[in-house]
Lab assay of single mutants.
Amino acid sequence: MEVRTIKVFTTVDNINLHTQVVDMSMTYGQQFGPTYLDGADVTKIKPHNSHEGKTFYVLPNDDTLRVEAFEYYHTTDPSFLGRYMSALNHTKKWKYPQVNGLTSIKWADNNCYLATALLTLQQIELKFNPPALQDAYYRARAGEAANFCALILAYCNKTVGELGDVRETMSYLFQHANLDSCKRVLNVVCKTCGQQQTTLKGVEAVMYMGTLSYEQFKKGVQIPCTCGKQATKYLVQQESPFVMMSAPPAQYELKHGTFTCASEYTGNYQCGHYKHITSKETLYCIDGALLTKSSEYKGPITDVFYKENSYTTTIK
Protein backbone atom coordinates (compact mmCIF):
# COMPACT_ATOMS: atom_id res chain seq x y z
CA MET A 1 0.00 0.00 0.00
CA GLU A 2 1.47 3.33 -1.03
CA VAL A 3 1.69 6.19 1.47
CA ARG A 4 -0.30 9.16 0.19
CA THR A 5 1.47 12.45 0.83
CA ILE A 6 1.12 16.15 0.10
CA LYS A 7 3.64 18.95 0.29
CA VAL A 8 3.04 21.80 2.75
CA PHE A 9 5.11 24.51 4.44
CA THR A 10 5.64 24.98 8.17
CA THR A 11 6.65 28.27 9.76
CA VAL A 12 6.83 30.18 13.03
CA ASP A 13 7.05 33.65 11.44
CA ASN A 14 5.47 33.40 7.95
CA ILE A 15 8.84 34.52 6.53
CA ASN A 16 10.98 31.40 6.80
CA LEU A 17 8.94 28.60 5.22
CA HIS A 18 10.08 24.99 5.71
CA THR A 19 9.02 22.44 3.07
CA GLN A 20 7.41 19.32 4.55
CA VAL A 21 6.10 16.15 2.95
CA VAL A 22 3.20 15.01 5.15
CA ASP A 23 1.61 11.60 5.44
CA MET A 24 -2.13 11.91 4.77
CA SER A 25 -3.00 8.98 7.05
CA MET A 26 -1.66 10.67 10.20
CA THR A 27 -2.84 13.86 11.93
CA TYR A 28 -0.79 17.06 11.83
CA GLY A 29 -0.33 16.69 15.58
CA GLN A 30 1.30 13.27 15.16
CA GLN A 31 3.69 14.77 12.62
CA PHE A 32 4.41 18.28 13.97
CA GLY A 33 2.79 18.69 17.38
CA PRO A 34 0.38 21.67 17.75
CA THR A 35 -0.40 23.00 14.24
CA TYR A 36 -2.43 26.01 13.06
CA LEU A 37 -3.89 27.08 9.73
CA ASP A 38 -5.02 30.74 9.62
CA GLY A 39 -5.26 30.68 13.41
CA ALA A 40 -7.45 27.56 13.45
CA ASP A 41 -6.09 24.62 15.45
CA VAL A 42 -5.69 21.69 13.00
CA THR A 43 -3.61 19.52 15.35
CA LYS A 44 -6.18 16.70 15.42
CA ILE A 45 -6.95 16.92 11.68
CA LYS A 46 -5.45 14.73 8.94
CA PRO A 47 -3.97 16.40 5.84
CA HIS A 48 -6.40 16.99 2.99
CA ASN A 49 -5.74 17.47 -0.76
CA SER A 50 -6.87 21.08 -0.43
CA HIS A 51 -3.98 21.68 2.01
CA GLU A 52 -1.36 21.17 -0.73
CA GLY A 53 1.09 24.10 -0.75
CA LYS A 54 -0.51 25.81 2.27
CA THR A 55 1.49 27.31 5.13
CA PHE A 56 0.97 26.00 8.66
CA TYR A 57 2.15 27.58 11.88
CA VAL A 58 3.89 25.17 14.24
CA LEU A 59 5.42 25.72 17.67
CA PRO A 60 9.17 26.42 17.81
CA ASN A 61 10.17 22.90 18.82
CA ASP A 62 13.69 22.75 17.37
CA ASP A 63 16.72 25.06 17.48
CA THR A 64 16.19 26.51 13.99
CA LEU A 65 12.57 27.41 14.73
CA ARG A 66 13.43 28.72 18.18
CA VAL A 67 15.94 31.17 16.69
CA GLU A 68 13.47 32.24 13.99
CA ALA A 69 10.69 32.74 16.56
CA PHE A 70 12.92 34.76 18.88
CA GLU A 71 14.18 37.00 16.07
CA TYR A 72 10.63 37.72 14.93
CA TYR A 73 8.67 37.98 18.19
CA HIS A 74 11.48 38.83 20.68
CA THR A 75 10.09 36.37 23.22
CA THR A 76 11.12 32.93 24.43
CA ASP A 77 7.75 32.22 26.09
CA PRO A 78 6.86 28.69 24.85
CA SER A 79 3.12 29.45 25.09
CA PHE A 80 3.33 32.66 23.02
CA LEU A 81 2.69 31.29 19.52
CA GLY A 82 -0.25 29.13 20.60
CA ARG A 83 -1.84 32.09 22.38
CA TYR A 84 -1.25 34.30 19.33
CA MET A 85 -2.91 31.72 17.06
CA SER A 86 -5.97 31.19 19.26
CA ALA A 87 -6.44 34.98 19.47
CA LEU A 88 -6.04 35.27 15.68
CA ASN A 89 -8.80 32.70 15.22
CA HIS A 90 -11.17 35.31 16.75
CA THR A 91 -9.62 38.61 15.59
CA LYS A 92 -9.70 37.49 11.92
CA LYS A 93 -13.52 37.45 12.24
CA TRP A 94 -13.71 41.02 13.57
CA LYS A 95 -14.50 43.96 11.29
CA TYR A 96 -11.96 46.78 10.94
CA PRO A 97 -13.73 49.85 9.51
CA GLN A 98 -11.89 52.99 8.45
CA VAL A 99 -13.29 55.75 10.66
CA ASN A 100 -12.18 59.32 10.01
CA GLY A 101 -9.01 58.08 8.28
CA LEU A 102 -8.09 55.65 11.07
CA THR A 103 -8.46 51.87 11.35
CA SER A 104 -10.93 51.04 14.13
CA ILE A 105 -12.56 47.80 15.33
CA LYS A 106 -16.29 47.15 15.26
CA TRP A 107 -17.41 46.24 18.77
CA ALA A 108 -17.23 42.50 19.63
CA ASP A 109 -15.93 40.38 22.54
CA ASN A 110 -15.26 43.37 24.87
CA ASN A 111 -12.66 44.65 22.39
CA CYS A 112 -13.32 48.38 23.01
CA TYR A 113 -10.01 48.75 24.90
CA LEU A 114 -8.16 47.26 21.90
CA ALA A 115 -9.97 49.60 19.50
CA THR A 116 -8.95 52.58 21.64
CA ALA A 117 -5.33 51.40 21.83
CA LEU A 118 -5.25 50.73 18.06
CA LEU A 119 -6.67 54.19 17.27
CA THR A 120 -4.16 55.84 19.62
CA LEU A 121 -1.18 53.99 18.14
CA GLN A 122 -1.99 55.42 14.71
CA GLN A 123 -1.66 58.96 16.07
CA ILE A 124 1.53 58.80 18.12
CA GLU A 125 5.03 58.22 16.79
CA LEU A 126 6.15 54.75 17.81
CA LYS A 127 8.45 52.10 16.36
CA PHE A 128 8.21 48.53 17.62
CA ASN A 129 11.29 46.39 18.26
CA PRO A 130 9.89 42.94 17.40
CA PRO A 131 9.55 42.74 13.58
CA ALA A 132 6.29 40.82 14.19
CA LEU A 133 4.68 43.86 15.84
CA GLN A 134 6.09 46.38 13.37
CA ASP A 135 4.97 44.33 10.32
CA ALA A 136 1.49 43.77 11.78
CA TYR A 137 1.26 47.46 12.73
CA TYR A 138 1.87 48.54 9.11
CA ARG A 139 -0.84 46.12 7.96
CA ALA A 140 -3.20 47.43 10.65
CA ARG A 141 -2.75 51.01 9.46
CA ALA A 142 -3.74 49.79 5.98
CA GLY A 143 -6.92 48.27 7.42
CA GLU A 144 -5.85 44.65 8.04
CA ALA A 145 -5.56 44.66 11.81
CA ALA A 146 -6.38 41.03 12.74
CA ASN A 147 -2.73 40.00 13.26
CA PHE A 148 -1.86 43.15 15.16
CA CYS A 149 -4.80 42.73 17.57
CA ALA A 150 -3.95 39.05 18.09
CA LEU A 151 -0.31 39.95 18.80
CA ILE A 152 -1.34 42.64 21.30
CA LEU A 153 -3.44 40.04 23.13
CA ALA A 154 -0.55 37.56 23.13
CA TYR A 155 2.03 40.11 24.36
CA CYS A 156 -0.39 41.32 27.07
CA ASN A 157 -1.22 37.76 28.16
CA LYS A 158 -4.90 38.42 27.47
CA THR A 159 -7.55 36.21 25.92
CA VAL A 160 -10.34 37.34 23.58
CA GLY A 161 -13.44 38.41 25.53
CA GLU A 162 -11.55 39.42 28.67
CA LEU A 163 -11.99 43.02 29.83
CA GLY A 164 -8.90 45.10 29.25
CA ASP A 165 -7.34 48.37 30.32
CA VAL A 166 -5.92 50.85 27.80
CA ARG A 167 -3.14 52.09 30.10
CA GLU A 168 -2.01 48.55 30.92
CA THR A 169 -2.13 47.58 27.23
CA MET A 170 -0.10 50.63 26.19
CA SER A 171 2.41 49.94 28.94
CA TYR A 172 2.97 46.38 27.62
CA LEU A 173 3.32 47.69 24.06
CA PHE A 174 5.71 50.47 25.09
CA GLN A 175 7.97 47.79 26.58
CA HIS A 176 8.27 46.37 23.04
CA ALA A 177 8.82 49.77 21.42
CA ASN A 178 11.99 51.74 20.80
CA LEU A 179 11.87 54.40 23.50
CA ASP A 180 15.65 54.42 24.08
CA SER A 181 15.99 58.13 23.36
CA CYS A 182 13.08 59.11 25.64
CA LYS A 183 14.01 60.97 28.79
CA ARG A 184 12.13 62.80 31.56
CA VAL A 185 13.57 64.91 34.38
CA LEU A 186 11.30 65.61 37.36
CA ASN A 187 11.79 67.90 40.33
CA VAL A 188 10.09 67.40 43.69
CA VAL A 189 10.05 70.43 45.99
CA CYS A 190 9.12 70.17 49.68
CA LYS A 191 9.28 73.14 52.09
CA THR A 192 10.74 70.84 54.77
CA CYS A 193 12.97 68.46 52.78
CA GLY A 194 14.20 70.72 50.00
CA GLN A 195 14.26 69.52 46.39
CA GLN A 196 15.13 66.31 44.63
CA GLN A 197 15.60 65.66 40.92
CA THR A 198 14.90 62.33 39.23
CA THR A 199 15.70 61.25 35.68
CA LEU A 200 13.50 58.62 34.02
CA LYS A 201 14.24 56.74 30.80
CA GLY A 202 12.24 54.57 28.40
CA VAL A 203 8.64 53.62 29.26
CA GLU A 204 8.67 55.58 32.53
CA ALA A 205 9.69 58.69 30.62
CA VAL A 206 6.49 58.76 28.52
CA MET A 207 3.80 57.65 31.03
CA TYR A 208 2.47 59.49 34.07
CA MET A 209 -0.33 58.42 36.42
CA GLY A 210 -2.01 61.07 38.56
CA THR A 211 -3.11 63.91 36.30
CA LEU A 212 -4.50 64.21 32.77
CA SER A 213 -3.24 67.73 32.11
CA TYR A 214 0.23 68.00 30.60
CA GLU A 215 0.14 71.76 31.27
CA GLN A 216 -0.57 71.10 34.95
CA PHE A 217 2.32 68.61 35.04
CA LYS A 218 4.63 71.34 33.71
CA LYS A 219 3.39 73.83 36.33
CA GLY A 220 3.43 71.32 39.18
CA VAL A 221 1.20 68.70 40.79
CA GLN A 222 0.68 68.18 44.52
CA ILE A 223 2.03 64.90 45.90
CA PRO A 224 2.52 63.69 49.49
CA CYS A 225 6.18 63.94 50.55
CA THR A 226 7.87 61.12 52.51
CA CYS A 227 7.94 63.51 55.51
CA GLY A 228 4.12 63.66 55.47
CA LYS A 229 3.80 67.24 54.18
CA GLN A 230 2.60 68.23 50.71
CA ALA A 231 5.26 68.54 48.02
CA THR A 232 5.13 69.84 44.44
CA LYS A 233 6.34 67.69 41.57
CA TYR A 234 6.95 69.34 38.21
CA LEU A 235 8.44 68.53 34.83
CA VAL A 236 11.93 69.95 34.28
CA GLN A 237 12.73 68.32 30.95
CA GLN A 238 10.95 66.06 28.46
CA GLU A 239 12.53 64.44 25.39
CA SER A 240 10.05 62.18 23.56
CA PRO A 241 7.72 62.18 20.53
CA PHE A 242 4.63 62.00 22.80
CA VAL A 243 3.51 61.78 26.43
CA MET A 244 0.67 59.77 27.95
CA MET A 245 -1.08 61.28 30.98
CA SER A 246 -3.46 59.06 32.96
CA ALA A 247 -5.72 59.28 35.99
CA PRO A 248 -8.71 57.34 37.34
CA PRO A 249 -11.71 58.19 35.10
CA ALA A 250 -13.21 61.55 36.09
CA GLN A 251 -15.16 64.36 34.43
CA TYR A 252 -12.64 66.28 32.38
CA GLU A 253 -12.93 68.94 29.72
CA LEU A 254 -10.96 68.39 26.53
CA LYS A 255 -10.18 71.58 24.63
CA HIS A 256 -9.81 71.38 20.87
CA GLY A 257 -6.22 71.73 19.67
CA THR A 258 -4.60 71.17 23.07
CA PHE A 259 -4.14 67.38 22.85
CA THR A 260 -3.76 64.58 20.28
CA CYS A 261 -6.24 61.96 21.48
CA ALA A 262 -7.79 60.56 24.65
CA SER A 263 -9.54 57.52 26.16
CA GLU A 264 -12.98 57.89 27.71
CA TYR A 265 -14.06 55.22 30.19
CA THR A 266 -17.67 54.85 31.34
CA GLY A 267 -18.66 52.32 33.97
CA ASN A 268 -16.91 50.75 36.92
CA TYR A 269 -13.92 48.48 37.46
CA GLN A 270 -15.85 45.25 36.76
CA CYS A 271 -17.71 46.45 33.74
CA GLY A 272 -17.21 49.47 31.55
CA HIS A 273 -16.76 50.79 28.05
CA TYR A 274 -14.00 52.72 26.27
CA LYS A 275 -14.43 55.35 23.57
CA HIS A 276 -11.73 57.28 21.75
CA ILE A 277 -11.65 61.08 21.42
CA THR A 278 -9.43 62.62 18.76
CA SER A 279 -8.63 66.26 18.07
CA LYS A 280 -8.57 67.01 14.32
CA GLU A 281 -10.15 70.11 12.74
CA THR A 282 -12.78 69.57 15.43
CA LEU A 283 -13.25 66.93 18.16
CA TYR A 284 -14.34 63.45 17.10
CA CYS A 285 -15.52 60.58 19.26
CA ILE A 286 -14.92 57.10 17.83
CA ASP A 287 -16.86 54.23 19.38
CA GLY A 288 -16.06 51.08 17.40
CA ALA A 289 -17.52 51.80 13.95
CA LEU A 290 -19.47 54.88 15.12
CA LEU A 291 -18.29 58.46 14.68
CA THR A 292 -19.69 61.61 16.29
CA LYS A 293 -18.25 65.11 16.18
CA SER A 294 -18.44 68.06 18.53
CA SER A 295 -16.67 71.36 19.10
CA GLU A 296 -16.28 70.76 22.83
CA TYR A 297 -16.16 67.71 25.04
CA LYS A 298 -16.60 66.91 28.71
CA GLY A 299 -16.71 63.36 30.02
CA PRO A 300 -15.07 60.59 32.06
CA ILE A 301 -11.53 60.70 30.65
CA THR A 302 -8.79 58.36 31.86
CA ASP A 303 -5.87 58.86 29.40
CA VAL A 304 -4.77 61.86 27.34
CA PHE A 305 -1.99 61.73 24.74
CA TYR A 306 0.00 64.80 23.72
CA LYS A 307 2.53 65.32 20.94
CA GLU A 308 5.93 66.40 22.24
CA ASN A 309 9.46 66.74 20.98
CA SER A 310 11.57 68.58 23.48
CA TYR A 311 10.55 70.66 26.50
CA THR A 312 12.61 72.44 29.15
CA THR A 313 11.06 74.26 32.11
CA THR A 314 11.35 78.00 32.68
CA ILE A 315 10.73 77.53 36.43
CA LYS A 316 13.81 78.74 38.27
Results as ranks from 00 to 15, higher is better:
A247Q: 06
L81W: 08
T5V: 11
Q134R: 13
R141A: 10
T313A: 15
L119F: 02
T260N: 07
G101S: 06
D63C: 07
M85A: 05
V21Q: 12
C227S: 01
S181V: 07
F174T: 03
D38R: 09
H51N: 08
P47A: 11
D13Y: 03
Y137R: 03
K316L: 15
T260Q: 08
Y73T: 05
H276A: 00
K293A: 14
F217Q: 01
N268Y: 12
G210E: 01
A115P: 04
C112Q: 06
V206Q: 02
N178K: 11
I15Q: 11
K127F: 10
A177H: 01
Q30W: 09
V42D: 05
A289T: 10
I315E: 15
F305C: 01
C149Y: 05
G288L: 00
S86H: 06
G267V: 08
V203H: 11
K316F: 15
P78R: 14
T75F: 03
S50H: 11
A177W: 01
A69S: 10
A150N: 03
L114C: 03
A136V: 02
I315T: 15
A142T: 15
H273I: 03
T226E: 13
N16A: 08
E168L: 09
V185P: 02
F174Q: 02
V67Y: 12
K280Q: 14
S50E: 14
Q238S: 02
G53V: 07
E281G: 08
A87S: 08
V185T: 09
T43G: 13
T302R: 00
F174P: 01
L212F: 02
S86I: 14
K46W: 14
V160S: 03
D303M: 04
P300K: 08
F9C: 11
Q270F: 06
N110M: 02
G161Y: 04
S50A: 13
K93I: 06
I301G: 00
V185G: 01
D109L: 04
I152F: 00
H276I: 05
Y306R: 00
F70V: 11
S104I: 05
K54V: 11
Q31S: 13
K307E: 09
T211G: 08
R141M: 12
K275T: 15
K44E: 15
S295A: 14
T211I: 08
T313E: 12
K7Y: 09
E281N: 08
T226G: 14
Q31P: 06
L235I: 10
S310E: 11
Q216Y: 05
L200E: 08
Y72A: 12
S294D: 09
V67K: 10
R83G: 05
G228S: 02
Y252T: 15
N129D: 08
G210A: 02
N187I: 09
V189W: 08
I45M: 13
N61T: 14
S263A: 13
Q216V: 07
L163Q: 08
V221T: 08
K229L: 12
C271F: 13
A231R: 02
A247I: 02
I286P: 00
Y137G: 02
P78A: 11
T302A: 13
Q197H: 06
Y297M: 06
F217P: 01
D63Y: 08
Q134A: 12
F70R: 09
S294E: 10
T226R: 15
L119V: 07
A262P: 00
H276P: 01
K255W: 06
S294L: 15
N16F: 06
P130S: 06
Q222E: 13
K191S: 13
E308C: 09
G33R: 05
A154R: 02
P300T: 14
E162I: 02
V8P: 06
K95M: 11
T292H: 14
V304H: 00
G257H: 07
G33C: 05
T199H: 11
H176Y: 15
Y311C: 00
P131W: 06
K233E: 11
D63E: 14
S240T: 05
E71V: 05
G267P: 07
L283S: 00
C261D: 00
P47L: 04
K106N: 10
T11H: 08
A145Y: 03
S25N: 14
V21T: 14
Y208E: 08
C112G: 02
Y274N: 04
C112R: 04
I223K: 04
A231S: 06
K158D: 05
T312Q: 12
P131M: 04
S263R: 01
V58W: 05
T302S: 08
C182P: 01
A69D: 08
F9Y: 12
T5Y: 12
N147C: 11
G143D: 03
E71H: 08
Y269R: 15
A205T: 04
V236S: 06
D303P: 00
Q98S: 08
P224D: 11
Y274H: 01
S240E: 00
Y96W: 04
Y155E: 03
A150R: 04
F148P: 02
A205Q: 00
Y234V: 09
F128N: 01
V203Q: 08
T211Y: 04
E281W: 00
M24S: 13
S213R: 03
S181H: 15
N14P: 06
A142M: 13
K298M: 12
A87T: 06
I15N: 10
V189N: 13
V206C: 09
T159F: 09
I152V: 10
